[in-house]
Amino acid sequence: MSFAFGFTDEDLNDVDIHDTKVEPTSKGKIESALETFNVLPEHQPRIHCLSSILQTLEGVRLTFDNYITAGGHIVYRRELYDVKHQIMMEEKDVSSKLSELLIERNDADVQSNVYEGGFKSWECSFDVVDAIHAVTEKSGLLNSSILELGCGTALPSCYIIKRKFEERDHRSMSLLVSDFNFEVLRLVTIPNIMINWASTLAVEELHRLTTDEVNSRFENNEVFITKELIQEFEKQLQLYNVQIVPVSGSWGREFNQLVGQYKIDFIISSETIYSPDTLPVVAESIKNILENAGTTHGQALIAAKNIYFGVGGSVVDFLTYLNSIKNSHFEIEVKEIADSSLRRSLITIEYK
């Protein structure tokens, strides 16, 4: 069953998170969602080699567009039709189910345990970019271990990478980008990160790295991925002490253990609380990852529409569940955004 996440204020004007008192749902012991959440063998989380993904992009011309957020910050994103073209041109069999959803039907935003919407950029990801800008202005985010949970097109991570190289910041930073589908990581997440990094290069340098006698075309909305461009990207990642870690598979206890080795102190998650089945898993995972990171100060930034009609998740349900499991080390702040036809919220979770 397919559905869309676009709702109007007319649909949402009876839902106000500030009118809802958020309290634990039970005074007794709450059954852990992480303990009961079943992860199928084929969906076990896995860390992938960035270099191996980059090699699959060599010889691909990425067509992209630029997007300006409400706060005036620019990010770049690969065009969806360009992704579809690559899938059709490849000899290898990209997941036939994903190919059907993306190309043949083109009508499914999410299909549980098959595809979780990663090829599209959802509205709240732009809110996160603006929030990330504010965080980088007043904190050491560019010197953190960051996890984008359910990254998809990864616009927040792209903005972080863009800022990192624009500011020539050499402090150590780890960036974990996780999505349910490996093909999302390969076809949009990593390409988008490369595009945003490439935007920080001088035009003359980018021209030199992306053209040769055979491929001489140079457009301002395309990046041709050459061996030389990949080498320069990997070289600059080392130079600026940036580690990019792609992670595929399902959330759950195994996922938290896998990413736990990176001592995450900042979590980003956008449009991931739409399902009542996984909403508790997101809440518990944030708490679990920050508690086990060994940091004295951790933070999570969660962006969501106030309510997801037809699906069941909501900001109120997420806050209710989070308050039922948190302890005194966690502080929660909610900022509502109503600057368009969508009522959305940014939830900041501080761990101290």
Rank of each mutant, 00 (worst) to 15 (best):
E205P: 14
Q236P: 02
K305D: 13
E90A: 07
F309T: 09
S340F: 10
C158I: 14
E271L: 13
S139Q: 11
Y81R: 02
F266D: 11
S2G: 12
T136V: 04
S269E: 09
D179I: 15
G294Y: 00
V334R: 06
S172N: 10
P156R: 10
V334W: 07
F330G: 03
D277V: 15
I193H: 14
E100W: 10
L149I: 12
F330R: 06
K97Q: 12
K120L: 13
P276C: 03
E284D: 02
N221K: 15
T226Y: 06
K29D: 12
L142W: 06
N292F: 08
L142K: 01
T63M: 13
D65I: 08
I264M: 03
I132V: 12
L149N: 00
G150Q: 02
R77E: 05
E137S: 11
L57T: 04
F309W: 15
L175I: 10
V223M: 02
E222L: 07
V177R: 06
E123R: 10
L175E: 02
D109V: 10
I190H: 15
V83F: 06
A134M: 11
S340Q: 05
H170N: 04
A300I: 03
I30M: 13
N66W: 07
D265K: 00
H43I: 05
I87L: 14
I47L: 06
R46W: 05
V110S: 03
A154W: 15
R217P: 09
N288I: 05
R171C: 12
L142M: 07
R77W: 03
I268E: 00
T200C: 01
S199V: 03
K138F: 04
A303H: 00
C124G: 06
A202W: 00
S341W: 04
I53P: 03
L301E: 06
I225C: 04
A70F: 06
K287G: 07
D11H: 11
T200M: 01
E232P: 12
S328T: 15
E35D: 15
E333I: 07
L80E: 10
K138M: 04
K263S: 08
D277I: 12
V60Q: 13
H18D: 15
G310T: 11
K305G: 14
L279F: 14
T8N: 01
V315F: 06
N256G: 01
V334Y: 10
N38R: 14
I332L: 07
A131F: 08
A154P: 05
A283Q: 00
A198D: 07
I161D: 02
A108S: 13
S145K: 01
L239D: 10
G118T: 10
G28H: 02
Y240E: 01
I307H: 15
P41C: 03
E116T: 07
E350Q: 15
